[in-house]
Computed example of a mutant assay.
Amino acid sequence: MRLLFLGDVVGRPGREAIVDQLPALRTKWKLDLVVINGENAAGGFGITETICDDLLNAGADVVTLGNHSFDQREALVFIDRQPRLLRPINYPARTPGRGATVVEAANGGRVLVINAMGRLFMDALDDPFAAVDKALHDCPLREVVDATIIDMHAEATSEKQGMGRYLDGRVSLVVGTHTHVPTADEQILPGGTAYQSDAGMCGDYDSILGMQPEEPVRRFVQKTPGSRLEAASGPGTLAGIAVETDDATGLALHVAAVRIGPHLSQSRPHFWE
């Protein structure tokens, strides 16, 4: 199965990069499933129903979120009627929405997607390891689904690596989101799980984490209140990870970073090109 995960969409540049490029990539790479983290898609803060629909219409099968899940208050309502939009599974039980879903891939396979959020340097939530464990127990790889993707939305690289090692051999892909900087550690772990500490962002990399750099720099220098952070407005880059899995096991056969656009070194899955 051919899987593509794209990192945090930040503002209009990220949205436009996906709308402009993803439909052609789905065809060229014969993708079976695409997951996109959309928690910064609305000007850098949360997601709206219209933007969620745009990402799904462009070729995403599932949109995941994170600590900005409900920055746009309308998300508290529409998330319950959009089964392909996930918030972290370890949010409190009464939080609107869901943290996991099973979707049908283009090849007819069934894929479990789980969105989890770390706790180091983040909001206090329930244990993500226990929450993911329960979801996997209810929907195990090779028995119920053909592939499993975990979006581990976390600040600490160690916590993301911990989730990767904890789930090695039990899921197809563990990929980190949240820090907006693509890491160079894409690999297949010893048990067969594909892993990357952070997929990076889909947005304008002539920025600070997708934001216009002037105000963040001013805050670092002066440490005084200032204006609101604004999303950068230059051309967007797609960043993420491509994984091909073994249909017999659901584990990874090939993995490659994806970076398409200005400012970063380019990377594409050579095994699909």
Results as ranks from 00 to 15, higher is better:
M1I: 11
R2G: 03
F5D: 03
F5Q: 05
R15K: 09
R15T: 10
E16Y: 07
A17E: 00
D20M: 14
L22W: 00
L25W: 01
K28E: 11
L31V: 07
D32M: 07
L33C: 15
V34Y: 02
V35T: 04
N37H: 01
N37F: 01
N37K: 02
E39A: 04
N40E: 03
G43K: 02
E49Y: 00
I51E: 06
C52E: 12
D53W: 08
L55I: 10
L56Y: 08
L56M: 14
L56R: 08
V63W: 08
L65I: 11
G66E: 10
D71H: 15
D71E: 15
Q72A: 15
D80A: 13
P83G: 12
R84H: 08
Y91A: 13
P92A: 15
A93E: 12
R94G: 12
T95I: 10
P96A: 09
G97V: 06
R98Y: 01
R98K: 13
T101W: 06
T101R: 13
A105H: 10
A105R: 08
A106S: 11
N107A: 12
N107P: 14
R110E: 12
V111A: 09
I114H: 02
A116K: 00
A116W: 00
M117Y: 06
M117F: 07
M117P: 00
M117H: 08
G118M: 01
R119W: 03
F121C: 08
A124H: 00
D126H: 10
D126A: 14
P128Q: 00
P128R: 00
A130Y: 00
A135T: 04
L136N: 05
H137K: 15
C139L: 13
P140V: 12
L141A: 11
L141W: 01
L141E: 05
E143L: 14
E143G: 14
V144F: 13
V145Y: 03
V145I: 12
T148C: 15
I150V: 15
D151A: 06
E155K: 09
S158W: 08
K160G: 08
G162T: 11
M163F: 00
G164Q: 01
G164T: 02
R165H: 11
D168M: 10
D168C: 13
D168K: 10
G169C: 09
R170D: 07
R170G: 03
V171K: 04
V174G: 08
V175G: 09
T179S: 14
P182H: 06
P182Q: 07
A184I: 14
A184Y: 13
E186A: 15
L189T: 05
G192N: 03
Q196I: 10
A199S: 04
C202W: 02
D204K: 01
Y205G: 00
D206K: 05
S207E: 01
P213C: 04
E214L: 06
P216G: 04
V217G: 05
V221L: 15
P225T: 09
R228G: 11
A231G: 13
A231F: 09
S233N: 12
G234W: 03
G236K: 04
L238D: 01
L238G: 02
A239Q: 15
G240Y: 01
I241M: 03
V243W: 03
E244G: 09
T245K: 06
T245Q: 07
L251T: 07
A252C: 11
H254M: 05
A256P: 05
A257C: 10
A257K: 03
H263Q: 12
S265Y: 01
P269I: 03
H270A: 15
